[in-house]
């Protein structure tokens, strides 16, 4: 088996995560899509570390994890905050930045 398979798997997971971001309306699921993308990159990084024979890729993945943890904390806080005021966890409902006029 080729090590490349891991990279292909990472790409597949990444694409699925991206599609989830685009297709799901629940903010929490969207957020999980983002997490999936981060994890996919981590897998790729770990694989690359193995291919290159040094640990820098793993260190990078480690930092990604830490930052992802911080990101999750803030992101979920935002989701909860929005939910409190708008009674909705749909990303489509939080569209106050839209142009006032409806697009033609």
């Amino acid at each position: 088996m080729s090590v490349t398979n891991y990279v292909v798997l990472a790409a597949l997971l990444f694409s699925i995560g991206a599609s989830a971001v685009l297709l799901r309306r629940n903010a929490i699921i969207v957020f999980m899509g983002v997490e999936l993308m981060l994890n996919a990159t981590n897998l790729a990084l770990v694989t690359f570390a193995r291919i290159h024979g040094n640990l820098v890729g793993q260190v990078l993945a480690f930092f990604v994890m830490v930052v992802a943890a911080a990101e999750v904390v803030v992101g979920l806080a935002i989701i909860v905050s929005i939910y409190r005021t708008r009674r909705s966890a749909s990303v489509d409902d939080a569209n106050l930045l839209k142009d006032v006029r409806e697009p033609a």
Binding site: Y6, N39, N42, L43, V46, T47, A49, R50, Q58, A61, F62, M65
Partner: peptide, 13 residues
């Protein structure tokens, strides 16, 4: 994924 990390010598991760 955790399994795969371990399989790829990334035990800590």
């Amino acid at each position: 994924l955790a399994f795969m990390y371990v399989a790829q010598d990334a035990v800590f991760l």
